[in-house]
Simulated assay, not measured.
Amino acid sequence: MATTVNRPVTHAGVRKAERNPVDHVWAIARIAIGWVFLWAFLDKTFGWGFATPAAKAWINGGSPTTGFLKGTGEHALGVGTRIAAGAGTAMLLLMWAAELPLTTNPFLDEHIVYAIVLIGLALAGAGT
């Protein structure tokens, strides 16, 4: 005799994904990494004075990333979590390499840590 298993469904009839604590940690990591990228974009756009002075802001005709990105080449824009994680990892590794030699740590800095988190998100199937 077959056993019937009742599973929670959404209003569209699609089964809800079962959640565990690690899913919440990965969700927080995704939001945190997104905030780091968003904040850098906003500071460079408006020159709020954290990493970018107002005179070098994009909105004021400046180019805050000219020196930093000089010689790093084109960056890919991803659509979807895995593609975005790959593009973000590549960008972070280029940013890490552009700062060599590191002044605060001989090897590991936040760029490598963020890249590891992005790789983890991609491999964990985040966004599915």
Rank of each mutant, 00 (worst) to 15 (best):
L92T: 03
T10D: 05
G88F: 10
A126Q: 10
K44W: 00
A98L: 01
M91S: 04
T128N: 12
D43R: 04
G125D: 05
I33R: 09
G80K: 08
Y114D: 12
V79Y: 14
T103I: 12
I59K: 13
I119D: 13
W39R: 14
E99A: 07
E110H: 15
A2L: 14
T45W: 14
I112C: 03
K70R: 11
A90L: 04
I31P: 03
L118P: 04
R7F: 05
F46N: 04
V117Q: 06
A98S: 08
A122D: 13
A51G: 03
W58D: 01
F68R: 01
P21W: 08
S63K: 01
A97D: 12
L123Y: 10
A85M: 11
T72F: 00
T45G: 04
A55D: 04
G78K: 09
G86T: 06
T65M: 02
A12S: 11
A84Y: 05
F50C: 07
A76K: 15
H11P: 01
A29D: 14
V117M: 13
R19F: 11
A32L: 14
L38W: 08
A55C: 00
F68S: 00
A115C: 06
V14Q: 07
I83A: 15
T128S: 13
I119W: 13
G78M: 10
K70H: 09
W96Y: 08
V5H: 11
G62T: 02
I31W: 08
V14P: 02
